[in-house]
Design a protein around this nucleic acid. Structure first.
Lengths: 331, 331
DNA sequence: CTGTTAGCGCTTTCAA
DNA sequence: TTGAAAGCGCTAACAG
């Protein structure tokens, strides 16, 4: 069942059949109708690989994400999927589990799969072999959540967001504010947020930063508890992401501290689930789906005009602050 | 940069270059080495669309899921992604948002994209136009979470799971057990779970089922609260999924009921996040990643042997019960 | 508006 | 073991 069969049955050339599907306006209403009818009768579906081979456009986008087990990324992917569908692109996601080597492999696979462009969340754009490959091949790509002047990034201003949060906490009397983070070296996001934390403290002349770094998520709660049981424990926890914040609340519970009375907890990401938690998670909300969506729009636009994206195509979307119940941060 | 360039530079025929990449054992160690070296130098990557066109195998799997905003499905997709990578398949996910029409469109797109097979979570396999199309085209597919004798399904025995939970609750003194569900008609899973609930009640001679159906997630908490404020409110909530359970706990909080002292809440799905909640979610744990993984293995095996899957290829994986803190269900 | 035709890059007989 | 050559199904000049 190919274009020839349809052409034969419709009494037209293959070119005409091709046109009815690829550029219908170049065909008479009448013939188009007939061809479409015949095609439908025969259950004909254009063979995409032949088309791709010929046009050198796969209408497929590669997506590289750390993991889908963190709702930030699955929400983002949901936005990506939606936008891609709108623009008539298929997506091919690969997860890297924060492993640099996997980022490279993912990009390799996607290049081999002939994608027209990529959207990715990498560990650190400053020094990424994966991105080098893309640059070398002149494949359009866009980063999400990452932040770097040399690359096209769709993200929010994490640093300012954390500064703002710290300020609000200070305003509410907190002087002992800890930052709870995963392995800082694992991602530029964590680093940005930490920088925001430091700046925030500085701004209010609090000189001693208190960093709780939990490299392994599974041991997080225990490790956090260790800190919460100390005599000079922090009165507020600024967390590098919502998953950590949830664990922070859990740790507080296990230490018999009540949130927010004894301990304020602020998250970062704005995962939807945080809305339904008790106490509702106070957090910095990134527009996760929108970030994904905009990344795809940007990418699709670049592909359409045969361009490649650069740092100057970056876009900073607005974050917002959700005043939940896990910390009082009224402005 | 194509196979010809490499062939020329290596002083061999295109056939030999092709062989070094597709069936290396059919080429002398020596020539293979040379070809590989040249290819690497030139940065040659085989053009996948040409290969697909020729071999009629895309090594791509279509994935159809309701949404990625529910962690059950993103965890499952994570498993799918991992397994696909292992088996050297790419995946193309599409979300349907529980809309039947979208399921059909998704399948259409994926067929057009030339996938070798599909893994899907549909609303209801009993009467699914999407599945009919797959059968008609003899494309291998497998369902995940769905349950139906006429289709290959990878799932758990939800019904029994809920029966077990109800029994345990009864054993702990509950007589007024409500089921909290989304729109029952929206998915066969919800129906299976409801059936399990009814069977459970029957088994213990509790004659009045109490169904709280919340079609729209956003209005869920309010609606649940309405029921919790009634005089003859249930003492336990068996929820059709974890997201609902979390909202159930929220509603309890807003109604000043403490969980589990005043209200027991049991979820279904076993999303990872439930582990860190306070109170930790008592729930029926489905091996979400494993379900995805097995689906891919099954699918890949079928594709490899050019077979199509049927109801007799179904596999029921084991669920487990997480005795969290939101309900006491010690056996 | 429609048809003819070359060729996208690869795999795979078949023959050497 | 290697090469020559046909052809997968489609699109896009180009000609009519």
């Amino acid at each position: 069942m190919n274009i020839q069969d349809v052409a034969l049955r419709a009494g037209v050339s293959t070119a005409t059949v091709s046109r009815t599907f690829s550029s219908p306006d170049k065909v008479t209403e009448e013939t188009r109708q007939r061809v479409q009818r015949i095609a439908a009768e025969l259950g004909y579906i254009p063979n995409s690989s032949a088309r791709v081979l010929r046009t050198r456009r796969s209408r497929t986008l590669g997506i590289v994400l750390p993991t889908l087990l963190n709702p930030v990324f699955s929400e983002c992917l949901d936005g990506i999927a939606l936008a891609a569908q709108e623009r008539d692109y298929a997506i091919m996601p690969i997860t890297t589990d924060y492993v640099l080597e996997n980022e490279k492999m993912a990009v390799n696979r996607l290049i081999a799969a002939n994608v027209d462009g990529l959207a990715l969340v990498v560990s650190n754009p400053a020094d990424s072999p994966a991105l080098d490959m893309l640059q070398a091949r002149k494949l359009p790509y866009v980063l999400i959540y990452n932040h770097h002047p040399g690359h096209p990034c769709i993200t929010v201003d994490s640093e300012s967001a954390v500064v703002e949060i710290v300020s609000r906490l200070v305003k509410h009397g907190h002087r002992s504010i800890a930052m709870l983070a995963g392995q800082l070296s694992a991602s530029d996001r964590a680093q940005q947020r930490y920088r925001g934390y430091l700046l925030g403290l500085e701004k209010h002349d609090i000189s001693v930063p208190y960093l709780i770094e939990v490299p392994f998520m599974d041991a997080a709660i225990e490790k956090i508890s260790d800190h919460l049981l100390k005599k000079n424990r922090p009165s507020a926890l600024v967390c590098s992401n919502d998953l950590l914040a949830i664990r922070g609340m859990r740790a507080a519970y296990e230490c018999r501290l009540s949130v927010p009375a004894d301990l304020s907890v602020v998250g970062f990401d704005g995962i939807t689930l945080g809305l339904d938690l008790t106490p509702q998670l106070t957090t910095i909300v990134q527009p996760n789906m929108e970030l994904g969506r905009q990344a795809i729009y940007t990418l699709a636009a670049a592909i359409d005009e045969n361009a490649t994206l650069t740092g100057s195509d970056s876009r900073i979307l607005k974050y917002s602050v959700r005043r939940g119940e896990s910390a009082d941060i009224a402005p």
